[in-house]
Amino acid sequence: MAIWDYANPTRFLRLVQVVLPWLIGLCVIAFAAGLYMSFFVAPEDYQQGDTVRIMYIHVPAAWLSMMCYSVMALSSLGTLVWKHPLADVSAKSAAPIGAAFTFMALVTGSLWGKPMWGTYWVWDARLTSVLVLFIMYLGLMTLWRTMEDPIKAGKAAAILTLVGALNLPIIKFSVDWWNTLHQPASVMRMDGPTIHPDILWPLLVMAIAFTLLFFVLHLMAMRNEILRRRVRALRLRAASAAQPGTAAATAQPAE
């Protein structure tokens, strides 16, 4: 089955109905295992002590904040290049989830920074670029809300999303390009992770749990957006039927 087979929203909704319970089950299991490993299996760090346990939520939230934006950028390409009917539904639905993960990364990082760095916040390249990402998410959410027509809003948001995607490599490489208070990458490195496996495994399990959570929420939000567009299309159809002289409602791709 190709991705185009799910361009039909009704078929996509049927797929969501089948897949969602399995994803939710896997997500709950992954979180249970990840939290158990984070608090009862993983040792204290020799320098940071127990505060290293903040890493098990901070790092996955930070990864997901970037992955979510990558999903939005790909969806935006789908809107502008391939005109896939569900592409802007995907992008719009992912924005609030991405904003929430970015918010989690910023606040947990701040709460980790105070005992380790002695400050909640510094205007260094990594922290500032992630704050810019958060503002981008809020801006995109606002843009979608300010435009009545979801098709026009989708196109405008897709362009803005792709422009904002330039921030992703800046976030990733900021710790290498500039001298920052934030530590450099210690998991995704060309020469392999520099973290001890006792700490790395809980982190990876929590990253899987966060990724599953993203997919669960994204599918649910996409389903809601399809339903919202159906409601809008039906209201427009009812309004045009009530006033025969007015222009007929335009059909929405994700109706």
Binding site: E44, D50, T51, I54, W112
Partner: peptide, 8 residues
Amino acid sequence: LGPHAGFI
């Protein structure tokens, strides 16, 4: 969770 339990 040590002296920084509140942050965790």
